[in-house]
Simulated assay, not measured.
Amino acid sequence: MSPFSDSLAVSRYAEGPSRLVPGFADMHRMTLLLLAERTPAIGRVLVLGAGGGLELKAFAESQPSWQFDGIDPSAEMLRLAQATLGTLMSQVRLHEGYIDTAPAGPFDAATCLLTFHFLSLEERRRTLHQILQRLKPGAPLIVAHHSFPQGDEERMQWLSRYANFAVSSGVERTQAEKAIAAINAQLPVLSPQQDEALLREAGFCDVSLFYAGFTFRGWVGYKAEINGSSEI
């Protein structure tokens, strides 16, 4: 069973990111600043992997005139997102499914936070292509997920650092060890070089790193303007 279909695990979801993701709240704040560079006052933003509603809540509170379409395959997580958002749901439409479920747009911006590390290489390629097709020219995509060197020794070193961070945040050592074993065995994590190359391959330009926290990395890239450039 996926943890995102387990009601007990879902109910505890909000406890996890702030304990496991270095600078979690600041990552949201940086994402908002990057979105605001290109998104107009009355903007529409696609949020892929929106279950739980944590980033949607941060975004909607900060930008009350923006509208959001949140996509997630887990009905349980979308119910949690709805509860998390409360009255902020007036700014949000939630959709159960994957990128194919997302409206055609065009959107002023898109985000995909703490999600891509669950997707296979081919599914990432397909998803990035589909996101690009839904964006306006010049619109940003912001992604952040597990991404660290994949040599055997480096991989285990970074996973150990992830576990140590979790323990320092109050997670039991046995639980942290289980987490890194699951990541090592189940998640198709890529290296930062591979992740950045995928963004460029999909058609995003001006790709740059904006966030790094132990095993996590975050990038911003842009759909090319009609004249072939998206430079500010």
Rank of each mutant, 00 (worst) to 15 (best):
P192Q: 09
E61T: 04
S208V: 10
Q157I: 04
P149C: 11
I180W: 07
F165P: 09
T87G: 12
L113I: 06
H95R: 10
I142H: 01
D206R: 13
K178M: 07
T87A: 15
S62E: 08
A60M: 02
S147G: 14
S229K: 07
S18L: 01
A166S: 10
R200H: 13
T84K: 06
S62Q: 09
D72G: 11
F107Y: 15
Q150S: 14
S160D: 04
A9D: 06
D72N: 11
V10D: 00
I180T: 12
E55I: 02
E196H: 14
I232N: 10
A166H: 07
P22A: 03
V47T: 02
L135E: 09
F214I: 07
E154L: 14
R173M: 09
S7I: 05
D6S: 06
A102Q: 09
A36N: 13
A182Y: 10
S5F: 06
L190Y: 07
M89H: 14
G218N: 03
G23Q: 03
R93V: 10
N184P: 00
D72E: 08
Y13S: 01
L198Q: 15
G23H: 04
R93N: 11
R126P: 00
P73Y: 11
W219N: 04
G213N: 05
A58N: 02
G52R: 01
S2C: 08
E76Q: 10
Q175F: 09
F214W: 00
S160R: 05
R79F: 07
L56K: 04
L35R: 10
I232M: 06
G52N: 04
F68Y: 15
L54G: 02
I71K: 14
L48G: 06
I226F: 11
G138E: 03
D152R: 14
P64A: 07
G138P: 05
P188L: 02
L54N: 01
A185R: 10
F107W: 08
